[in-house]
Design a binder for these strands. Structure first.
Lengths: 141, 141
DNA sequence: TATTGTTATACTCTATAACTATA
DNA sequence: TATAGTTATAGAGTATAACAATA
């Protein structure tokens, strides 16, 4: 590992702290929690198994059971069964869940767009140029 | 707001989702929670008032009272008094708290440095070039 | 009266241990 | 025996409402 990687990691760590704090302040008054919105996002492209959901979100299976219980109680997701293996339980968005996901996403995008309006063209270009590298940096293994 | 700002906000929102999920998975087995580490970070440069801490972290005052209670119970922070106003309570790092903060930070930086090792020089340069703009984007108002 | 902080209470989020059902 | 999931229980994190102390 080179010195440059270490220095870059330190700088990014500092920036990530500010990003996380700002996002927390910006989403503190949302109708849905960020965890719930995040789980709904995992179901956007179709049903997902409990085990997959837990792994993607870095939580244990009982945690995801409780989360899906709350989302099902609120009418945002539905449990289903996988035909090929009777042990498997899947979760899928309901129409209300899809609406809630779209609303939450719109709020976050609106917040970001407002912040981007305060940047110069050069700064926006720098962010745009870095997104592919950031995606690679944080891609699932 | 231009179309470009909107499109950029959508792309960054998608990237932020991956960043948050990855950081959650990477820090799931830490000795200290990310909230606790974040609060310790706010005390790095000296004592801080309860109200300031709550505002910085986007939580209500009773939430920060509970958080500081836990950190004080664990010997990581100490409550103090502000001389000029008898209502004000401050929180400050103990020696153990400072050590814990350094250890948690080191773990995060190590994780990021490892990920950076998987990027090309061009990709690292793109991230470095974007950090000032990202800091401005997420700076406190 | 307004500000600073805590206490009381309830809900979300999370983990470990123990359990059921299926492979 | 191993895997997928739930239930039971406990603790962290969060909010609102009510309270005490100080400005």
């Amino acid at each position: 590992m080179t010195v440059s990687e270490r220095a870059l990691a330190e700088q990014l760590n500092r920036s990530l702290r500010h990003i996380v704090l700002m996002l927390r302040r910006a989403t503190a008054d949302q109708a849905i929690t960020s965890q719930q919105l995040s789980v709904l996002g995992s179901l956007e492209h179709g049903p997902c198994r409990m085990t997959e959901l837990a792994a993607e979100h870095g939580v244990r299976l009982p945690t995801m059971t409780a989360q899906i219980n709350r989302l099902e109680r609120d009418g945002l997701v539905e449990r289903g069964r996988d035909g090929s293996d009777a042990r498997v339980v899947t979760a899928a968005l309901t129409a209300a869940g899809r609406e809630r996901l779209a609303a939450g996403r719109e709020q976050r995008i609106g917040f970001l767009a407002e912040r981007f309006a305060g940047l110069t063209d050069e700064e926006r270009a720098a962010v745009a140029a870095a997104l592919p590298a950031l995606d690679k940096l944080f891609a699932a293994p």
